[in-house]
Design a protein around this nucleic acid. Structure first.
Length: 496
RNA sequence: GCUCCGUUGGUGUAGUCCGGCCAAUCAUUUCGGCCUUUCGAGCCGAUGACCUGGGUUCAAAUCCCAGACGGAGCACCA
């Protein structure tokens, strides 16, 4: 399917030992505790791209096995799948770990039979102390029968949280303390928020659940963060007991984002939304996928930027400008131009300028037609664009004016004065007939006036406000196209 | 404290396994020019990097050793 460009440049390195597998199978295993932030896009972007490249397969598996500390958000399951689709990918299969408890229990029983696990009632502190000095705890050598009995009691919910765990027997003297006899199942008193899982009290830990599931669905390549580097080593003990072969694994570093004041963290964002500091997950100030989507950024631009980050184990700083640059290429040709003046300053006009300005909708596409901007006797300019006294300025699409005694005097000079470099070109809107427009940006809201026809655009339309930047029209109040007190149009800032 | 891992321009990345074709690739950013009723785009150009110190070698970004700096794990979180 990509035979003809097999040797072509790829943005991503090849997967290890890719040719040893009939099919490349990967998984994306989010914790459904909220919609995705921008950093989450890396996983689907990369495995989706690998899937296309190798004609492979990937699933989404919701690793929702902690009903308490990382309590799942019931809305997040669908929100995440929507985010995935926004990025341009569909999962071949969707699993939910909390539906699969019986599978994990069965594997735990087999592990006990294989002598690879034991129930332990040490407190966390007690065990930690023993473990750190390389000493086994007294529960390590129970009979298989006792272990089975106690594990069945765990499943039955006989114990309370903290009273009993099932540990994987690894090597209590392993030189890496992180790998010594880790917990595979623990008791959780809090019911899971999903109805079908609400009665379970004995929950697997990520390392066990994930390890078992990866094998069951035939994952060949695991891609995940460096925080899980030791997980692979822990899981190998289970794989060895079962005589399974561990998948290829790639660990990558953390992604940091520039240009945002808000930390890229699902729980932080959730707290800010809860407190009313953010309007929601799609607030333009939030570094979330829903926010970028509302701003009119194409998922493809995000995917491409993520793929360009590669898969290195060191931490990376993602510049939003790289997402913006890609998106600009995607939308520029099809996006019409409009005028929008931020925080405008009103200036009178004199000298009989033309009654209407008709700049093109798109400078490269004359066939799309022109805009219709009635001029009137005054315009709004941006504060920074106000010319010095007794100098000339070119109102884009209208003509040349001389700034005298608080008014702009039409001069009728030809465009050559601009070519000569003496005259700045600025955008403007008529003071009398523009529509008020609030532009919501990552740095906060901006108010101003847009040329009249912006008031009749459809929500969802993309525009480029000349010399300001791209924006997505979000809401239009058809009633108030003249000087209403409130904004009649709300737009979300895309990028410059 | 114990165990891992990493370090190429402002940012990301290629090259590192199998040393020479690397006075180091591509993208983005910044700056300049051209074009354009002069936005954006496009075209052209510029700035800008191999963590440090030793060693091996005719030759090191690449191999070896030491150090510095950064990151991760040692949870009944994911």
């Amino acid at each position: 399917m990509e035979a003809d460009d097999e040797e072509d440049e790829h943005d991503l390195p090849g997967l290890p030992n890719a040719d040893e597998y009939d099919q490349i199978r990967m998984r994306c295993a989010p914790n459904p505790n909220g919609p995705w932030h921008i950093g989450h896009a890396r996983m689907p972007a990369v495995i989706g791209t690998y899937k296309q490249r190798y004609d492979g397969w990937f699933c989404v598996r919701f690793d929702d096995t902690d009903p308490e500390t990382k309590r799942p958000d019931l809305d997040a399951y669908d929100a995440i799948l929507e985010d995935l689709s926004y990025l341009g990918f569909e999962a071949d299969e969707v699993y939910t770990a909390s539906d699969r408890l019986e599978i994990y229990y069965d594997h735990a029983r087999r592990l006990i039979d294989a002598g690879g696990a034991y129930t332990c009632s040490c407190s966390g502190e007690e065990f930690s102390a023993l473990k750190n000095s390389g000493k086994p705890c007294p529960h390590r050598d129970k009979s298989t029968e006792t272990i089975h009995d106690e594990f069945e009691d765990m499943i039955a919910g006989v114990y309370d949280s903290g009273e009993m765990v099932l540990r994987v027997k690894t090597d209590i003297e392993h030189k890496n303390p992180a790998l010594r006899d880790w917990v595979a199942f623990r008791m959780v008193d809090t019911p899971h928020p999903r109805e079908p899982a609400a009665d379970y009290r004995c929950w697997p830990m990520l390392d066990f659940q994930s390890g078992v599931d990866d094998h069951i669905v035939g994952v060949t390549h695991i891609i995940r963060g460096i925080d899980l580097q030791d997980s692979a080593k822990r899981q190998r003990f289970v794989y060895d007991y079962f005589d399974w072969e561990y998948p290829e694994v790639i660990h990558w570093g953390h992604v940091q984002l520039d240009e945002y004041d808000v930390k890229m963290s699902t729980s932080t964002l959730g707290t800010l939304i809860e407190a009313g500091d953010l309007d929601g997950w799609d607030d333009p100030r939030a570094p979330t996928l829903q926010s970028l989507r509302r701003r009119g950024i194409e998922g493809e631009a995000i995917t491409e930027a993520m793929v360009q980050l590669g898969t290195s184990t060191s931490d990376v700083d993602l510049a939003m400008s790289s997402i913006y640059a890609t998106n600009r290429n995607l939308i520029d040709e099809e996006t019409d131009r409009r005028f929008y003046v931020r925080e405008g300053v009103e200036v009178g006009l004199a000298g009989s300028p033309p009654g209407e300005a008709n700049p093109p909708l798109h400078p490269n596409h004359e066939d799309r037609g022109v805009r219709h901007i009635p001029v009137g006797d005054a315009v709004f300019l941006e504060q920074d664009d106000l010319p010095a006294r007794e100098t000339r300025i070119w109102l884009k699409g209208l003509g040349c004016f001389h700034y005298t005694r608080d008014v702009l005097q039409y001069t009728g000079d030809p465009i050559d004065v601009v070519r000569d470099g003496d005259v700045d070109v600025v955008h403007w809107v008529p003071a009398a007939e523009s529509v008020s427009l609030t532009l919501r940006t990552p740095d906060g809201d901006v108010t101003g006036w847009a040329e009249p026809e912006v008031g009749s655009l459809e929500p969802g339309a993309l525009v480029q406000f000349e010399r300001v930047g791209f924006a997505r029209i979000d809401a239009v109040d058809a009633g108030g196209t003249d000087h209403a007190t409130d904004a009649s149009v709300v737009a979300y800032y895309t990028h410059d």
